[in-house]
Computed example of a mutant assay.
Amino acid sequence: MEITIRKGGEADLPAILGVLDSAVTWLNARGITAQWGTEPFSARPKAVRQVEDTMAAGDPWIAEIDGVPAGTMTLTPFPGQHVPPAGEPEVYVRLLATGAGFHGRGVGTALLAHAVAETRRQRVPLLRVDCFAGSGGRLIEYYESQGFTRTTPFEVGDWPGQVLERRL
């Protein structure tokens, strides 16, 4: 099994939404409904617009296994609306997700390694990401295992989040 990562574009919106939708299904099957809710991204017009806007603001990337989209992320030069910018050049990982049938196969690790390489290629010293801080902090621990360090916690309503960074 080989993971290939390719740059995405506007035409990849259905594939990206498909990965995000299957991630919601995977999370919900494990009782995790607070992270991304219970409705697919593609069924929520506001979420679709958010994905489109994020893709337009940066570089979407698709991880494929045997030609099938297995994961996605978009790298932007700034965070989303609920996190303040770093105050220095940064690359921000947004909408990172692994498709339901591809968990445990290294897709997220491959995408984050690509984010590190892309950040270095751009000669930017700071890579940041934010994640859901609920569910016992499992996502925070995952990012820490990938070389990120916790910085700022935040909340959007009752949704707990955590910003993490990796200096390069």
Rank of each mutant, 00 (worst) to 15 (best):
V93A: 13
R105H: 13
A70R: 08
D66L: 11
A70V: 11
E64L: 06
V68R: 15
G31E: 02
T74R: 04
A115P: 08
P14W: 13
F78E: 15
A117M: 06
L20T: 01
T109V: 12
P84Q: 04
E52P: 05
P60A: 01
D53C: 13
G8D: 01
S42W: 02
R6S: 15
W36A: 05
T72M: 08
W61I: 01
I16W: 06
A34C: 12
D59I: 14
T98R: 02
T38P: 01
I16R: 01
L111T: 04
V83N: 10
K46E: 15
T98A: 03
G8I: 07
R30G: 01
Q50D: 15
D66P: 05
H114E: 10
K7P: 07
V107H: 07
T109H: 13
E90M: 02
E10Q: 05
V51T: 12
A47I: 00
E118H: 13
V91A: 14
V24R: 00
D66A: 15
G37E: 09
I62P: 04
E88V: 04
V19G: 07
G87T: 09
W26H: 10
A57W: 13
F41E: 00
A110T: 10
A70D: 09
F41A: 07
D12S: 11
E88I: 02
S22M: 09
E39S: 11
P69S: 08
G58S: 12
V24H: 00
L27W: 05
D53G: 13
A56W: 13
A113M: 06
A34K: 14
V48K: 00
T72C: 11
